[in-house]
């Protein structure tokens, strides 16, 4: 018990502090780094709560993969880009604060109505986690939900193809590009003067 207590009181302030620090950062990279700290401490809290699988997933997926993606996007857009912090819609800030408070109230109410603020595990928790938490999740994922799990992989593949199709630059028809390559180059008269020259797509 004591160990739990210590770990919690070490991690919880860091978690909240890093979250606030992330919001207050002007530099996007610094904000992202604070977010990593936050995700790590929340992962430790999961471990304390007896959810080792969630702990691992939180670190691998969120602190790992998704953060890399975040940083990648930030770098892609330009690290030194300044966001203007002027609200575009009038009353946006007030509405955001009110709605945020609303969500907090909703969560408190939902927890109160659901499991309550007790420290006991909800009913059936032990049975559902029989043989260990990751094992129980694995059984669910690869037995009862085997097919949805596999179907999700097809969904992700379609999403990847979709992103590629939509993001690709406009390309010239292959046939005409080849013909152009075979034609003798006439520097004085470009074949399509009206079309702005874009980079040739690779491959």
């Amino acid at each position: 018990m004591a160990a739990d207590w210590i770990v919690f009181w070490v991690c919880a302030p860091i978690s909240i502090g890093s979250a606030i620090a992330m919001l207050l950062q002007r530099n996007a990279v610094h904000a992202a780094l604070f977010l990593i700290v936050n995700l790590f401490t929340v992962a430790v809290l999961y471990l304390v709560l007896g959810a080792p699988f969630l702990f691992a997933v939180q670190i691998i997926v969120y602190a790992g993969a998704i953060m890399v993606l975040f940083l990648f996007v930030i770098m892609l857009l330009g690290v030194d880009r300044e966001e203007r912090l002027v609200e575009r819609l009038r009353g946006q800030r007030t509405a955001a604060i009110l709605l945020g408070l609303g969500v907090v109230g909703e969560v408190v109410f939902a927890i109160r109505a659901g499991v309550g603020f007790s420290t006991r595990a909800p009913a059936g928790f032990g049975a559902a986690n029989g043989g260990g938490n990751p094992q129980a999740l694995g059984r669910l994922l690869f037995r009862a939900y085997f097919l949805p799990f596999e179907v999700t992989s097809i969904l992700l593949m379609v999403a990847a193809v979709a992103a590629m199709v939509l993001a690709r630059r406009r390309e010239r028809p292959v046939a005409s590009a080849e013909r152009r390559a075979q034609e003798p180059i006439e520097p004085s008269e470009p074949s399509e003067p009206s079309e702005p020259r874009e980079e040739e797509p690779v491959g």
């Binding site: 179907v151 969904l155 979709a162």
Partner: peptide
């Protein structure tokens, strides 16, 4: 739901 998403996304 998953099948609906596959067909919609495509």
């Amino acid at each position: 739901f998953l099948a609906l998403e596959i067909l919609s996304l495509s």
